[in-house]
Amino acid sequence: MATLFRKVLAALPRLGVQVLDLGPGAAVISRRGGYTARKAEAGAWLVGRERTSTSAERPHAPAGTWGLPQATASSLCARHVAGLLANYQVDCVFDVGANKGQYGTQLWRAGYRGRIVSFEPVPEALERLREIAERDEDWQVHPCGLGREESVASIHLGWKTMNSLLEPSAYGRQRYQRFADTGTTTQVRIRRLEDVMDEALDGLAAPRPFLKMDTQGYDLEVFAGAGDRIGEFVGMQSEVAALRLYEGSPRMAEALAAYEDAGFGITGMYPVTREETTGRVVEFDCVMARAARAVPVPGATGARDGSATGDQRPPVGP
């Protein structure tokens, strides 16, 4: 017998709502140009405006064509990361390119209760990030960027979540109207990941850190700045580019080769953005782990429920 949940899903298309059934208790629903809702867990829905682009950014393309698949990929990626953090008993997530704390908040909603160490150099985003992080005593915020070398650099502002230390590529300029303004910048401090790890991991008896990078073309520079200490990370997540949006950023094959050479293996690849007209993926969220560092769970084959640390602090978020 069909459950009420399934009956509702079956009725929604007649109301002009797109439905993608993800299995028991989970679905992605959206109305073009409206809102997208993702059921993250029992009793919890994630709702947000479906991403569309202006005609100047994606000419001659029907708005929202890939909105539902992208929302689904985002939901599946979040679930995958949550399971990996639990299976590998991660107790500290390095959130590089934290923006306003969206990733850390997502981790909390998914059940993670370990330490979060966020890095964000843009003043406006940093202010909001600090407000969010204040709700958790074990969420550190560092007002800087990370890179290959200690330095002071100019970062572009006004590109919203796409602010970068790099110039936009010719492809990036064609794709995103926001890249037309390249004159608004500010000076920010760049540190090396290797140099901040002792402070970030202080107090953890046997740290099992995870590295998340979303730095708009600069991930491989962040990775290089870890030096030999990259070997301490049990897993990582990086935004890799199939089509380069920034000058000087590595192509996907180059980035993946560097990560694999350092001992990480791919556990998941999730499209972040696509070209509306061609369907080509622009960027992927690539999730990786060191298989040798996985923690065996007797009698279990899937992700364990709950946090890596057993901490029961209340969840945080906007």
Rank of each mutant, 00 (worst) to 15 (best):
A86L: 05
T3P: 07
D21R: 09
A27E: 03
M213D: 04
R173W: 01
R148H: 12
G203T: 05
S118L: 09
F5R: 12
E247K: 10
E275H: 11
G268N: 02
G34S: 12
H80A: 09
C77H: 04
S154P: 01
L9R: 05
P121V: 09
E124M: 06
L204Q: 05
L245P: 05
P271E: 12
V316Q: 11
V19N: 03
V196S: 02
L85W: 09
D91H: 07
D198S: 13
G64H: 01
Q102I: 01
T105H: 08
E50V: 13
T277N: 14
R280P: 05
Q187A: 15
T278S: 15
L211N: 07
V295P: 07
M1N: 11
T273V: 06
V141A: 02
D261P: 00
A10C: 09
T72Y: 06
A205L: 10
D202F: 06
L68E: 01
E199G: 04
L166N: 00
L201H: 01
E260R: 13
Q102G: 14
A63P: 11
G147A: 05
A98Q: 10
G48S: 14
R304H: 11
A241I: 00
T36D: 04
P315Y: 01
V8K: 06
A133E: 04
M213N: 06
Y270R: 00
G231K: 08
M288F: 07
Y218F: 15
R49M: 07
T273C: 07
T309Q: 11
R280L: 12
P123C: 08
V96W: 04
A241Q: 11
L126I: 08
A153M: 14
V222D: 12
V287Y: 06
I190Q: 07
R38T: 08
G235S: 05
A125C: 02
E194T: 06
E221I: 00
S169I: 06
G317L: 06
D305L: 14
G114Y: 07
E275V: 13
S74Y: 10
T215P: 08
G265E: 15
G104L: 04
E221K: 13
R244D: 04
G23A: 09
R31I: 08
Y35W: 13
A300V: 11
T186G: 02
D95V: 11
G203H: 01
